[in-house]
């Protein structure tokens, strides 16, 4: 098999938010630093999909937006097609936008409520390409055919479209510029089950036909497993496990990954309607950034930490677990990886 080219590589990406005091606020409120993305590294091969999973607040969307430079990164490097993009000026980066696009979680994103579908697509086609009117019409027709949308929808305003149709227009808009790499941010959330399947099938179909690469961000573990070649699991801004989709789903090494997947009920276990084993889903509540943590950030919810009688290394501030290779292209950040 021919070695595939690496299309995207993210190295030590960090994004810190400073939640500070307003210019006129009084009192002693101290400025807090929130690590939305904390030292994240991964790469993506051409025509492949990397799934990025995690709960809300894990920073997965921030990673996607930082790659597209919609949010400035705090530090780190991002290579697209071997070219570092974070150091480029806005003008230098602009032409790259035709190669990398985003499918936003919000179905209405990018759809100007006062413009018809035709005008929306026409604008997208023309942003990076000089084309004559008939060429644009041709291109729009091709796009509609690619995303399987009826031509009669061209005359509609966004609010007249159903959720599935809006999603298709959103994808068509991203393809209109000729993107090769898509950040798909929760592309199925907010859609009905039957429509979710359509969208996932469409994305896979487009990948086969056009050779696209995806960064597939989702909290729907099944969908991620279905579409991704590799999966990265994020917890509070950090990748805690990274590996082939099948390994992550069926042989997780990080306790968090296991609790994520065990929260899913497979069809088989639906038959025995027994509650999942206690402790497997971790502790209650969502982590708040306000609480300072030391060492492993999953420790407060970690069942292994409890089982191991709270070993000191897990909460030792200087030894936050780093990703390390456990073989078979599988990496995990845990002091006590599961076997």
């Amino acid at each position: 098999m021919k070695m595939k080219k690496t299309i995207l590589e993210v190295v030590n990406l960090k994004k810190y938010y400073h939640q500070g005091r307003g210019p006129f606020s009084l009192g002693r409120g101290r400025q807090r630093t929130i690590p939305a993305v904390d030292d994240v590294s991964f790469y993506l091969k051409e025509n492949e999909t990397l799934g990025l999973v995690g709960e809300s607040g894990s920073g997965k969307t921030t990673v996607g937006k930082t790659i597209l430079r919609l949010i400035p990164a705090t530090s780190g490097e991002i290579f697209f097609d071997g070219k570092e993009i974070l150091s480029l000026s806005a003008g230098e980066f602009h032409p790259l936008r035709k190669d990398m696009q985003m499918v936003f979680q919000d179905l209405d994103a990018g759809l100007n409520p006062k413009m018809r579908v035709q005008a929306i697509l026409k604008e997208a086609v023309r942003v990076h390409h000089q084309m004559s009117s008939p060429e644009v019409d041709d291109r729009i027709r091709t796009l509609l055919e690619q995303v399987n949308l009826k031509e009669s929808k061209l005359g509609n305003f966004p609010h007249e479209l159903s959720g599935g149709e809006k999603r298709r227009v959103g994808i068509a808009r991203a393809l209109a510029v000729g993107a090769r790499f898509l950040v798909a941010d929760e592309p199925t959330s907010g859609l009905d089950v039957s429509i979710q399947a359509q969208v996932v099938n469409l994305l896979k179909d487009l990948q086969d036909r056009l050779g696209l690469s995806y960064l597939f961000i989702s909290h729907d573990l099944r969908m991620v497993e279905l579409v991704s070649h590799k999966v990265a699991v994020m917890y509070l801004g950090r990748i805690v496990e990274l590996g082939l989709a099948g390994h992550i789903a069926h042989a997780p090494r990080h306790p968090y990954t296991r609790s994520l997947w065990s929260s899913l009920v497979t069809k088989e276990s639906r038959e025995v309607s027994a509650p999942t084993s206690p402790g497997s889903s971790g502790d209650w509540g969502v982590f708040d950034f306000e609480r300072s943590f030391s060492g492993c950030r999953f420790a407060p919810r970690c069942p292994v930490y409890q089982e191991q009688a709270r070993p000191d290394i897990c909460t030792d501030p200087v030894s936050e677990p780093q990703l390390y290779d456990v073989g078979r292209a599988h990496k995990v950040a845990c002091h006590f990886p599961l076997s």
């Binding site: 959720g163 039957s194 399947a197 969908m223 279905l226 989709a245």
Partner: peptide, 19 residues
């Protein structure tokens, strides 16, 4: 999506048309 879809890379049987 179920095991068989994921293992054998079968596409999902989506319901045609819109809600």
């Amino acid at each position: 999506p179920e095991e068989k879809h994921i293992k054998d890379k079968i596409t999902l049987q989506a319901i045609e048309g819109d809600v």
